[in-house]
Design a protein around this nucleic acid. Structure first.
Lengths: 120, 120
DNA sequence: ATAAACCCTCCCCCTGGGGGGAGGGTCAAT
DNA sequence: ATTGACCCTCCCCCCAGGGGGAGGGTTTAT
């Protein structure tokens, strides 16, 4: 299957698909002349990538999963778990930071009000 | 005062200070030969920039404040307020999104567990 | 044989905020 | 006059994930 069909089926752009290959997320892509030939396995990987991206994972987070899957031919559940747990921990931190920031913004608003109370 | 002194007093790097000038955050910088000459007003602006950055504002958010201050010679309180309010609204949205994401991550973890329950 | 549809590589561009360094000019004081 | 400290411009680099387009080759069907 050519890249256009893959793009159509997965929703990933042709550019993106070549990019995944370039950074090692897609392996064993054969060629017919200069045209890349993809198989169903590639479709699965690309769909997985898109799903993980939608969940906030970066491509570099996804790489270990794909590589282990490829070299050991099994889905590395423990890696997936720890990636998910790490992500959740990060989200918690982000939320805390956001709350602190919000409080600082409130302070700043009050501070401004006091500063300019009689000048405007 | 030369740029090195400004950098020392404000904590902004020389690179950063020239960058602020380049994008229009610092105006009316005079020259002595090829050397930039700064005054106390510039120190105030740069300190303000650093503070706003620490609160999560982008340089492009800060620009309207600086420009209005320059053209009208008054601090645009209403612009500052709306910037702060916008930022707070954005933070609220971010927090909501983060919570949703967290729930999806939990679902995904469970989904994986079910998928691989008997294969590993 | 030719036209449509498809693909290829290569290069520059974007966001945000500068960092690193080359190569060279200048200022103040001794 | 020279030294050390300072400054200048210019260019490339980073992250992430591609987008846009130039310029050109290939395949497939008719």
């Amino acid at each position: 299957m050519y890249i256009g069909k893959v793009s159509e089926r997965t929703g990933a752009s042709r550019k993106a698909i070549r990019h995944y290959e370039e950074i090692g997320l897609l392996l064993d892509i054969s060629r017919s002349g200069s045209y890349r030939i993809y198989n169903e396995h590639h479709i699965v990987i690309i769909s997985m990538i898109k799903r993980a991206q939608a969940l906030g994972f970066k491509l570099s987070d996804i790489a270990p999963l794909v590589l282990t899957k490829h070299t050991e031919n099994r889905f590395p559940l423990e890696i997936a778990y720890s990636a998910i747990d790490e992500k959740r921990a990060q989200i918690k931190l982000d939320i805390e930071k956001a709350n602190l920031l919000d409080m600082e913004l409130v302070s700043m608003r009050e501070e401004l009000q006091i500063l300019f109370l009689d000048t405007e």
